[in-house]
Design a protein around this nucleic acid. Structure first.
Lengths: 127, 127
DNA sequence: ATACTTAATGCAACCAAGTTGCATTTACGG
DNA sequence: CCGTAAATGCAACTTGGTTGCATTAAGTAT
């Protein structure tokens, strides 16, 4: 039962790879020329996450965004300590490189980070 | 058109106040003895947020959690720089005091923080 | 206390994001 | 080229949350 390489899959993978930002389901559909079923897209994305190829971010609009894991986090697929920025004007979610600092009371074991700042990105705050 | 003080409202306010954790809609219903309509609860919570009484957190399960604003953040109702921890075993979302450090490329204007770490809390990681 | 205004409630219906079941298609190993 | 099972597509469902609207009940004026 190994994975199979399908057209749809590679299309989405390429999309995510060339994209700077994390994409939501409908961000993806928007960029697709050949229409794909909602379900298919979700399943492909979930597979990517399962395989540690992409990570899933739940933004503060409550929706899932997906981004290809940068090499830096390749060693550690669950704890993505970097932050994400969602621009409320252009609706892009970007991965912002660099670690986030915090301290937690002892005994707490983190196995997932979901850090979203939102506001206006560089481009939009100039308008 | 000022606000009116109703029973349901005070019940929920008290609930949130005495609770250490942030509560979701159904966390609240669970703790309620007298049953309240879903819609009513949501509307009350939204009003609290509007009035700067509570803040809304979107956890990494995609759901909204509400917590009374601690005094420290009274001066600044939108940017809650502190982090939240969601325990995946006991399903509690706690506010963790202390600022979170990060740096953002210039030009970015943050007006909301939504920082969720998840994993096992002190109590649960001992089990 | 009584009447009036309009905020708050409750119900039904709706909406959006995401998932599941199942029949059909299709990648890929033999 | 055949057979197996992974991937797709469609319909239907689930969950979290919101909206419309008639009804109830705060708070104010009389």
């Amino acid at each position: 039962m190994p994975r199979r390489q399908t057209k749809s899959q590679t299309i989405i993978l390429n999309l995510l790879q060339q994209e700077q930002a994390a994409l939501s389901h409908d961000g993806i559909t928007a960029k697709l020329e050949k229409e794909l079923d909602r379900v298919t897209i979700y399943r492909i994305l979930n597979r990517f996450v399962e395989d540690g190829l992409a990570h899933r971010i739940i933004a503060d609009d409550g929706r899932q965004y997906f981004a290809i894991c940068p090499k830096e986090c390749a060693h550690d697929h669950k704890a993505h300590g970097h932050l994400h920025f969602r621009c409320v004007s252009c609706d892009r979610v970007e991965c912002v490189p660099g670690e986030v600092g915090y301290n937690l009371p002892k005994g707490y074991r983190v196995d997932n980070h979901n850090i979203i700042l939102s506001g206006n990105c560089n481009a939009c705050s100039k308008k």
